[in-house]
Write a protein that binds this DNA or RNA. Structure first.
Length: 825
RNA sequence: GCCGGGGUGGUGAAAUUGGUAAACACAGGGGACUUAAAAUCCCCCGGGCUAACGCCCUUCUGGGUUCAAAUCCCAGCCUCGGCACCA
């Protein structure tokens, strides 16, 4: 029979599916017709605007990798689906091309980044077109383009004017290999995120954005935004809000007389203050010199020097022995009135809380370890159940209980005790309730070359003067020797003719800031720029921004859960407060996609399991590759890439092609039609939930049904399938759509098929029959069969009957359309 | 250590959210077509017992709830992410 069909279609025999021909044709057509680009007029007046965003790539020399394509395809499927629903979808793509990545690579191969980046961008653009994304290339952007970073600098100025940018000398993480300052976020377990070199501590003047001013708001808003749960959790952990108290301890002479100095500590357990038997300052604490006695000065100086050298590397290792040194100074425990010694130790960090702690070795494990190491007294002030004031402590007790050895607070239960003791401290003027955040201010300056210059001019008379807006952009000059050195001074300091400039305020000779800004500042606002790239005189056009933002759906990797996503939320909030935006959360919906792994491990050059996409696309086509990637597993969980796996989707597209080309006119077969409607329904429901793998499986199943027994399909059966596959395989969908006689692109107009609920219901159902919960047979009954008749039929089933004969029926459970369960005993 | 995600065939994974476990694919085996290969098509494919109808076992392990558990509860093991001396 299939032979006969082949014969019928002999005029079509040469038209077997050839992905590259089809894909080239449609990529050309889209370009020619402007299918994927919005006009300025559309941007200004679209009735149903939908902003589909994905994370723009850093254009590496290696080109797009499978992970990029996976992420972009997942977002593109969603965007194309929304478009077919009749929305005007804006799906831009750009390049995050500044930063240390490009700079390091340029240094390595000895090419200037200004030459390297355009070549990489060109290659990326070619590859991005090849995968068939619905990208609006008329509204692309590149962060290294002066017309873009002009506005990055403008944002810096806005924060500067608002008092949210400040320069201060700060102990910073210094990577001796990259020769640059790293943000705390770029330090992983004491080592540089990029090169794994242990980080040192240095004091350098740095520009900071005061993101901590927004900590509470950044945290509170997490309750209202529709983001992936894991991302929300990561953000909230990163902000790290904790409630506690600041307690003031007076510094005293050994004889108990006050020195006039006092030290504040931060604690989440003010209720254990009676058990504070010593105090520990961070080695960098400003009062260390003040409290140190002459005979201890040398030891302290030595310890501080050691701490500085090893700093974040060893300091962040938990499982090491506690070290420290006694200052010779004392302070008074405000609760007990007793003098307690002041130590310094590197387990106390200067940049958390106040950089000083009251040590309660009885109820804090770190303090306990320190006290044990240096033979300091351990006092019990909390007794758990079955314990009393004298139960010895073999380790810190942190569980529930009530206070002991705490004067008239004895007996207060622990959660209550925190409040009571804080109030007591407040009444007596030595403490107050405080909220503390783990989040640090954002250090945005880099002593590197490949970034936008920070638009500040340093004048001896006027101080730090912002570059006037009309002088923006401050163009990054071409400096041939841009290699960073150990001095901690940025390469731009070598461009004397560039940095020498008159002060905008007094006209005196002054110098430009030679630090450049962090890449995360570039990517912190790019989504605002995309819809307004037609405008040169403002970063984002107010009218267009009102129409298109916030972003409707943002899909990206969870590796940016804290940094990029936090910074862009912060900048959006600031711009709102300054009156430039009327919303404060940039992304309505954010979904984190999973990771593509190969051979059970993350793809990486060092593992040698990186898959290069180009040859696969060449052989099987972008459509098959897209489907395969989306078919691997749940999009939000990622999947394991196997080279052979693409055969499935590839064969599927071949069969789809043949089926459509051989389709006849005529009415659909009722049972096939039912399957088609079921499939349309399922895919319609699952795409918005990113249930791509199951959508594809449903379409495969549907095509199997259409073709079952070698039957020839009708046009009405296949047409909806072409439409619902279109978001996944846009090229073949266009070609087949065209073949069926449609003039316009399948993506123009609302071509998503509707389904008819009444055509979905089956007239007969299979009902499982169980005896005591074990499957003993199945029966097929008409959907409308009355319950009692279903049970009669079930009881009559041959195999079931064997089990029912033997025992007494106690109960019958009937789940309509699903099963009958006889409970016998 | 803390916070998340997850453990289902040889493999990637499904499972209407408590109702026939393994859909859809990959790999493997067998067959058809072909001079041959590729492509395509058809059949088999969790384990055990059986000539067969069937039966027993099976969703990391052990308990529990229920007529019914991959799904809910308790305990434990493993794994992958994130944070981590954060007071």
């Amino acid at each position: 029979m299939s032979l006969n069909l082949q014969h019928d279609m002999s005029n079509r025999e040469s038209d077997s599916y050839n992905p590259s021909t089809v894909e080239e044709r449609w990529q050309r057509e889209w370009e020619k017709r402007g299918t994927n680009s919005l006009t300025l007029e559309q941007l200004q007046s679209a009735k149903n605007p939908y902003y589909q965003l994905m994370m723009f790539p850093y254009p590496s020399a290696e080109g797009l990798h499978v992970g990029n394509i996976y992420a972009f395809t997942g977002a593109d499927v969603h965007g194309r689906f929304m478009r077919m629903q009749g929305l005007t979808v804006f799906e831009p793509m750009g390049f995050d091309a500044f930063g240390i990545h490009s700079e390091n690579f340029a240094l390595k191969i000895g090419t200037h980044p200004m030459d390297l980046i355009p070549a990489n961008v060109k290659n990326f653009t070619r590859q991005l077109r090849r995968i068939g994304g619905m990208f609006d290339w008329k509204h692309s952007l590149n962060t290294t383009d002066p017309s873009y970073y002009k506005w990055t600098q403008w944002i810096f100025l806005k924060l500067f004017e608002a008092g949210l940018a400040e320069q201060k000398k700060a102990p910073v993480n210094w990577c001796p290999s990259c020769m640059t300052v790293l943000a705390n976020e770029q330090v992983i377990a004491g080592a540089c995120e990029r090169c794994r070199t242990p980080v040192e501590q240095r004091e350098i003047k740095q520009w900071f954005f005061k993101i901590t001013d927004y900590a509470q708001r950044l945290l509170d808003n997490l309750a209202h935004i529709d983001w992936s749960e894991t991302t929300l959790k990561a953000q909230s952990n990163w902000i790290g809000r904790s409630e506690g108290a600041r307690l003031k301890f007076s510094v005293v002479h050994p004889d108990g007389h006050g020195t006039g100095h006092s030290i504040e500590v931060y604690t989440t357990r003010p209720d254990t203050v009676f058990g504070a038997t010593y105090m520990v300052l961070s080695p960098e604490h400003p009062l260390v010199d003040t409290v140190t006695s002459n005979e201890h000065r040398q030891t302290i100086a030595k310890y501080r020097a050691e701490a500085k050298q090893s700093d974040l590397v060893t300091r962040q290792k938990i499982d090491q022995l506690k070290t420290g040194a006694f200052t010779g100074g004392f302070c008074q425990n405000p609760a007990t009135g007793e003098n307690i010694p002041i130590w310094i130790a590197d387990y106390v960090l200067m940049d958390y809380g106040t950089g000083a702690i009251m040590a309660v070795p009885g109820h804090d494990q770190r303090d306990f370890e320190f006290a044990t190491a240096f033979d300091l007294p351990v006092e019990r002030v909390v007794a758990g159940p079955d314990e009393d004031a004298d139960t010895p402590l073999l380790e810190a007790y942190v569980g529930p209980g009530s206070l002991v050895n705490s004067g008239h607070f004895d007996g207060t239960a622990v959660p209550e005790s925190v409040r009571v003791l804080t109030e007591w401290a407040e009444e007596n003027g030595w403490g107050e309730a405080t909220v503390n955040f783990r989040l640090h201010d954002w250090c945005i300056s880099r002593q590197r070359y490949w970034g936008p210059p920070i638009p500040i001019i340093h004048c001896d008379a006027c101080g730090s003067v912002p570059v006037p807006e009309e002088h923006l952009p401050v163009i990054l000059p071409r400096v041939e020797d841009f290699k960073p050195d150990d001095s901690g001074v940025a390469p731009l300091a070598r461009a004397e003719e560039w940095y020498r400039t008159p002060c905008p305020e007094c006209g005196a000779e002054a110098q430009r800031e030679t630090d450049v800004s962090d890449t995360f500042l570039d990517s912190g606002w790019y989504f605002l720029r995309y819809p307004s790239t037609d405008f040169e005189d403002s970063p984002f056009d107010p009218e267009i921004t009102r129409r298109w933002l916030p972003v409707d759906t943002y899909i990206g990797g969870n590796e940016h859960a804290v940094l990029h996503l936090m910074y862009s939320r912060f900048l959006t909030m600031v711009l709102k407060d300054l009156g430039h935006l009327d919303f404060e959360e940039p992304y309505r919906v954010f979904r984190a996609h999973g990771l593509i792994i190969a051979d059970g491990a993350k793809m990486s050059k060092s593992r040698g399991n990186v898959i290069i996409p180009d040859p696969i696309i060449e052989e099987f086509g972008a459509d098959a590759f897209r489907i395969y990637l989306m078919f691997l597993g749940p999009f939000e969980e990622g999947g394991d890439y196997r080279t052979e796996g693409i055969q499935g989707p590839f064969g599927f597209l071949h069969r789809l092609w043949d089926t459509v080309l051989n389709a006849s006119e005529g009415p659909p077969d009722p049972s096939v039609e039912r399957k088609v409607h079921q499939t349309v329904k399922q895919v319609t429901k699952q795409i918005p939930q990113l249930g791509y793998n199951t959508s594809i499986a449903a379409m495969m199943e549907c095509l199997n049904t259409i073709r079952s027994g070698g039957r020839r399909a009708t046009r009405t059966e296949v047409e909806p399938i072409i439409a619902i596959i279109a978001p996944f395989a846009p090229h073949i969908a266009e070609e087949l759509w065209d073949h069926l006689g449609h003039e316009e692109s399948i993506f123009e107009g609302s071509n998503w098929p509707s389904y008819d609920e009444s055509k979905i219901v089956e007239d007969t159902v299979n009902v499982a029959v169980q005896v005591n919960g074990k499957l003993r047979g199945t029966i097929t009954v008409s959907r409308s069969t009355a319950e009692e008749d279903v049970i009669i039929a079930a009881r009559a089933e041959e195999n079931v009957a064997r089990y029912l004969d033997e025992a007494e029926e106690r109960r019958v459970v009937h789940v309509p359309g699903r099963l009958v369960n006889f409970v016998v005993g």
